[in-house]
Design a protein around this nucleic acid. Sequence first.
RNA 1: CGGGGUAUGGCGCAGCCUGGUAGCGCAUCUGCUUUGGGAGCAGAGGGUCGCAGGUUCAAAUCCUGCUGCCCCGACCA
Length: 574
Amino acid sequence: MKASQITVSTLKEVPAHADVISQQLMLRAGLIRQLASGLYSWMPMGLRVLRKVENIVREEMNAAGAEELLMPAVQPAELWQESGRWQKYGDELLRLTDRHDREFCVGPTHEEVITDIARNELKSYKQLPRNFYQIQTKFRDERRPRFGVMRAREFIMKDSYSFHLGTDSLAETYQTMYDTYCRIFSRIGLNFRPVEADTGSIGGNASHEFHVLAESGEDDIAFSTESDYAANVEMAEALSPISDLAERAAAGDAMSKFDTPSQRSIAEVCELTGADATETVKVLLVQGANEEQPVIALVLRGDHELNEIKAEKLPEVAEPLTLVNDDQIKAAAGCDAGFIGPVGLNVPMIVDRAAAANANFICGANENGYHLKNVNWDRDCDEPANVKDIRNVVAGDPSPDGKGTLEIKRGIEVGHVFQLGQKYAEALGAKVLDENGKNTTMDMGCYGIGVSRVVASAIEQNNDDRGILWPEAIAPFQAVICPIGYKKSEAVSAKCAELYDALTAAGIEVLLDDRDIRPGVMFAEWELIGVPHRFTIGDRGLDKGIVEYKQRRAESSEDLAADDIAQLAAKVSA
RNA sequence: CGGGGUAUGGCGCAGCCUGGUAGCGCAUCUGCUUUGGGAGCAGAGGGUCGCAGGUUCAAAUCCUGCUGCCCCGACCA
């Protein structure tokens, strides 16, 4: 293609409202333009990249035995009412009403529609397993869209759904999808990691997220220093610092109360006493799951954070997790938030493993203006009866698999595979006849890839001060020919045409910059856009019989024989 | 949804405090010169200053309300 045939609209200046590098570069390189908050147009150059990603996904999905279909973006409310999600999904679901006053939503995901298809089309176990996928626009009305297409409201997703008779078949396809995802992200050229993920309220046996490692990621991922263990911190198990509570440090001086007139936070109490936050214990009061126990105390070591997902799963705790209000705190603990402690607290307690392992600790006195020190379980208050893992792991914690310690890195979730089980099939009555002629509810898996997010995350990992450094597989063009004096010199235009034809014949997507612009502008634009291979052809070089070649990532260019077209073409495929 | 910021040509900004009829850089167009790293000179086009009210002889500027966009947080797949 000639450059004059594709819209190239680069910006010299960084757009004011773009604050992650991928968004800045996508705007500057003219790959996308913003229409409204969380809504972006894909410009021709950007769309080429998006299509490359889609095609890799499509090839690998097909190779894995999945079938492509396409479902409507707009879905009737009735289906969502059947699954129960019309109520549960909340404001992220964009709802609309048609001219007949019938309710619809713009699909944020397609479990309902695919399950409807499955219950109508799949009647026999002989038709199973099946794995359907689509690459399609989704809409989630995010409260705060940000980071450009990384967290947009409208985005492109590859979503697939598999149907099975029995969980063994599901597990098999799940593994196939897991492997397929690894191949897809490897082919795209991303530095990624599959990590164990929370299965959430849906339950199910297994779930993995695929994360691209980047500082701008919104998720924290815990990695073992010594093994392959990797998990979302939502999921990573926090082990007790001691193997048995009997190993707790021996109780020292007697418990005593001290003044903390204005010290409400752990940090303030530590500053006052000179203690480390690890030597403290804090208490959070949350709503209980039933009437008899309206308030539950969650006890953590002062330096730890509550993991809301872990806490929410406990049968004693109300779902969704809700902190009790100030009046309830006063009623339950006899003091304000900031002075609550386990000593004499007449509320059912769930104690985190690390808090339970503490001895001679500092905690609130359940009396405004006072804390306690040298507190010990058993001696000063009841031995914790209910010890659970309810905190987020932190860097330096032991790895749950017993090998090494954990480190925490930021990740961008680009894929998610999930064993759904029978949740949707059950709700919508998706059943097949089994070998015995008996109606059996199908098992389901679902597998998603954020296609548009993949593009942004590839840039997050591959850029320099001049622009984007596309991985070969998803570059909008593999090579660009930059003529110097294209319209002035016949030698230049002839050599450009010769190289262009040779590269095209070799199946390389090459762009010939036939625009009558200055070389500096041309170089700057293609470096910003990130085309991996560049040939510069000018009279100056041709007089010496050379064509200049530069790899986008290379420090400097190299001179190649202008006559050896095969050698030139080989540079791109190499 | 809570808190904060901001809104002036396609992009980035100044002007606002102290009201007097809109400006700079980039981009765009024309001409000439230039042509191996975002050119120079000369000229040109493009904005009812987010919207709606109000104050005033006069509002980009002061006041009120609304809206968009952005940031922080909470929330969520």
